[in-house]
Write a protein that binds this DNA or RNA. Sequence first.
DNA 1: CCCGTTATCTGACTAGAGTCAGAGGTCATG
DNA 2: CATGACCTCTGACTCTAGTCAGATAACGGG
Lengths: 303, 303
Amino acid sequence: MDDEVAVVRRFNRTVTQRIGVLNDDYLARARPLGASRLLWEIDENGVDVRTLRSRLGLDSGYVSRLLRTLETDHLIVIAQEPSDRRIRVVRLTDAGRAERAQLDRLSDDLAAALLEPLGAEQRARLVEAMGTVERLLTAGLVEITIEDPAGEAAQQCLRSYVAELDSRFAGGFEPEASISATAEELRPPSGAFLVARLLGKPIGCGAVKLHAAGPAEVKRMWVSPSARGLGLGRRILHELECRALEASARVIRLETNESLGEAVGLYRSSGYREVPAFNDEPYAHHWFEKTLNDQTRTTCRMT
Amino acid sequence: MDDEVAVVRRFNRTVTQRIGVLNDDYLARARPLGASRLLWEIDENGVDVRTLRSRLGLDSGYVSRLLRTLETDHLIVIAQEPSDRRIRVVRLTDAGRAERAQLDRLSDDLAAALLEPLGAEQRARLVEAMGTVERLLTAGLVEITIEDPAGEAAQQCLRSYVAELDSRFAGGFEPEASISATAEELRPPSGAFLVARLLGKPIGCGAVKLHAAGPAEVKRMWVSPSARGLGLGRRILHELECRALEASARVIRLETNESLGEAVGLYRSSGYREVPAFNDEPYAHHWFEKTLNDQTRTTCRMT
DNA sequence: CCCGTTATCTGACTAGAGTCAGAGGTCATG
DNA sequence: CATGACCTCTGACTCTAGTCAGATAACGGG
């Protein structure tokens, strides 16, 4: 662990020096950095000021002023939103688009400059390692929260879940044929539905059905393809176990389909052992069970 | 290549956001960031102001003022250097040392916070990837220059070179018994001595002996253990080939000892092919030769 | 139409980070 | 011991980046 921290520290130091500074210098071209960053956040179709503010986490007065400077440079135009005339919508002018393309090019140059002194082999290794770092650092930003299973985010996840099972199961998947897990059953106090979000965007879910007496049941585990390999499934599963423990369950169980290899692997390596079928779920090939012990408990943050 | 740039760009973005900002917030505790950074650079034995300035790349007036604030906070003392009373030497007080230890701890905390949300497996992968990124990014900072073989840096490298051969060769290594490569022979116009430096510190070397007619000879290739695996040997070798080309050599050759496996691998993969012994170097087991062609030439920056 | 709310803008201010042009010691050298 | 080169310090600025307290306009419900 100490070694790990040492590596991370060296990394922080090197990277913020070698990239952080350069990055800022590149982006700030004759214009305050803040203005460039703002320009960067204005997408093709225009954004309202409120969104810009929250995206960059800036004070409203400050943003207003930055927009004014971009406007006087003729890089953007600000117009009222017709449907609500309090709201201003920011749009890039042609000059603004050109400026953004320029920033884009500089950003490419910076990236190329980092790779340039290296040979092909080192370059490939660096790129791969950077990809890994980037993915795993963002994984640290994923937040898992209990949400209403009928909510927008939950429904979005469930649709993806169903679509994925349908494409992966040999004979497709019809939710109606499967054992029920209605919004009612997955809402406290009879259950819990977890949504994992990355910067607000839902990228995974999982649910647990609680039974007054008897084992809790894991349902609806899904992780977006873009977020796989980050240990997110394990985190969701662990959170579900915590919710089950909190509801005084001693045992948690689940069934799964043979086509979901990663999931089966996850369950096995998370301490689940295969047991005889405990229900008649038509899509299941494996049934798993785990006894929730103190070791699970101590790694839970109770809510 | 475009893919690579895209990965690097995403990396730059994510990482500078996630770490750059945090890092600064952590380090700046109730004190301007600049002051903290300065405090950080003062090592146990004291530093002179000039060194601080060049290390951080700051204006002399600015540094002076920052030192003044640290002094009034009783974190440092500034004294004249007895041997040259123009120079001031900065030393940490006990309070300063305590403050630095505190910064140290915060830096550890930050590192731990990045690892904290991840599972063991992801954590290990992140740490490894960070190590790779850090090493390869610094590899990009290595500068290879022609220096005098009798100079301080060159001599330092040569001492390390001899020590290493002595420890790795089965029967030790006596430079006197080996074929000569004197400073005279490795200095322009009869040769060239290259030193690789990382942030000023010598970390590798290599030399070439030129002969009016006939092949050039590679000599004294060495890379510091701390810098291995960065492709530095290959870069030095390539530079030597360029120097040879510049001096109109058509062929370059070298001999090496069987105990230097990495070196043998490097030569083979750099286009050298093994040839019969072309000299009577007592320590050699392999003799290599390469014809310098246009492909080599086009990748050379001529000086 | 009034009133509380929301979205944006303006003015006044602060702190940090750094630049620039000397000033004033100190040293090495002829 | 005069002179130019060095090193550090001081004073006077500048520019970013950001905060805070209203002002102003528009909306939405009663």
